[in-house]
Structure formats: structure tokens, C-alpha cells
Design a protein around this nucleic acid. Structure first.
Lengths: 107, 107
DNA sequence: CATGATATGTCCAGAAAAGGACATATTGTA
DNA sequence: TACAATATGTCCTTTTCTGGACATATCATG
């Protein structure tokens, strides 16, 4: 699946997604509006890293408080969801993140 | 110095270099063999982030224990330096890191 | 000869983060 | 009707990390 030099990949992915959890959440929500439970599931399938909901929900609140996400309550099949969408500030924050990454790999 | 979308740059740089301190050290030593004090100085000029030597030296030891760096004692003008050079494993680790970054920005 | 720069190292208290439990409610399935 | 999945939230203990101090030694400059 990965080349010879990719032996440390899992460790690095784990560290990046854990330390930059808020950024990774923004990256997912940037594609389409999502709610906590979907984010958790997608996180685990995308990165193969367990995401505690005890860490996720407080982080979502912080992202909304910072103005990077905006939530609206949604009723779907009797389920009360809190759907988050990215804001302009959120996109700017991601833009800064991608800028730093580009400097790191210089491409 | 930076565009409109770069307002969050400093925060992100700070978080990346602090959380991936070992990786950033490897990136510097990859270019040329360096000793602790030079790494500290270069760090501060490159990233504009203060690097405590109380954090640096233990990290260098861990990197050597993991086989990513190799040190040799050097005497230069009566100064006892511990010069670190990157190993093949160290380069492979960096390779994995750059791979993860490329996936993040998908380029 | 004192002060700042170079150079490397340890240690500890307080702060932050992680892991996991506690808590609740609905829906679908066996 | 019990159990798994969906869905969101809090709380507490343990572990990890951060900032800063303690410690030592040489060299250059005023």
C-alpha cells in the first residue's frame, strides 16, 4: 500500500491528527457540512485513528466559538443532529494551514 | 509579508513546530550536521519560535536513541560540541512526514 | 575581571491533554 | 426486549508537556 519509506506513516498521521484535531475537523467540514457523529466515523475511516467523542464535541464548540464553524439543528428521521458548516474565517484558517505545509515541503 | 489569508500563520507554525519538534530538528540536521546550540539559534531565526534548550537536548537524545541521528564529539576552539548527523532511518522518517503532508494538501 | 555568548545537561512544579467513564435519548434489528 | 447503532454532551483521573530554574564550563570583549 505504501512504499519502503512509509514505515513511520502511521505514527506521523496519529501525531498530526491528534495535535491538529481542530484543523482536521475543519478539513472534513470544508468538503460538506457534517455533524459530530459523521465526523467521528469519517475520521476513523480516513485516518484509521480512533476519535473519542469526549474530545470531538468540545473541539466543535471551540471551533464555533472561534467563528470557524457555524451550526444549525437538524431533525432527520427523529434524530436531532447539529450540522456544522465552515465559515469564511474557517477557510482562511485552513488557508494558513496549507501555506505552512507548503513551506514545510517547499512545493 | 504574508497575504490576507495568512493571519493565522503564526499560531499554526507555533503549534506545528512545538508538536513536531523532533521532525523539525531532523529537517534542519538533514541539510547539514549541526550541534544543539546551532539548532536552537537556527530554529529561532527560521520559525521565529523560542526553543528552550531544556526541551532541545532531551529531544536530541531521543532522536539518537531511535536511530534517526548519530552524534560525534567535536572540539572546536576549545568548545566541546556534540555534532549530530542524520541517518538513513532519519531520512526515511522524514520521507514519511513529507508523504503525510502531501496527502494533506493533495499536491 | 566581569559580562555576554557559546555549549550541554538535569530537574521540578504547574498546566494542558488524553483516556475513559458517566449520562441520556432514539431507531433499527435479532 | 435486549442489543447495536445513531447522536450529543459532561466529568474526572492519570499522564504528558511546558516553562523555567539549577548547574557547569570555556571563550571573547569591554
Amino acid at each position: 500500500m505504501f512504499g519502503l519509506s512509509e514505515g513511520y506513516r502511521e505514527e506521523i498521521v496519529g501525531r498530526v491528527v491528534r495535535n491538529l484535531l481542530d484543523v482536521q475537523i475543519l478539513r472534513l467540514v470544508e468538503v460538506e457540512p457534517l455533524w459530530g457523529y459523521r465526523i467521528k466515523k469519517q475520521f476513523e475511516s480516513d485516518f484509521n485513528v480512533k476519535l473519542r467523542h469526549g474530545a470531538l464535541y468540545p473541539t466543535l464548540n471551540v471551533l464555533e466559538q472561534r467563528g470557524f464553524l457555524l451550526s444549525r439543528r437538524q431533525q432527520k428521521d427523529g434524530r436531532a443532529r447539529k450540522v456544522y458548516a465552515i465559515t469564511t474565517s474557517g477557510r482562511e484558517f485552513l488557508s494558513s494551514y496549507y501555506g505552512v505545509l507548503r513551506e514545510q515541503i517547499r512545493c
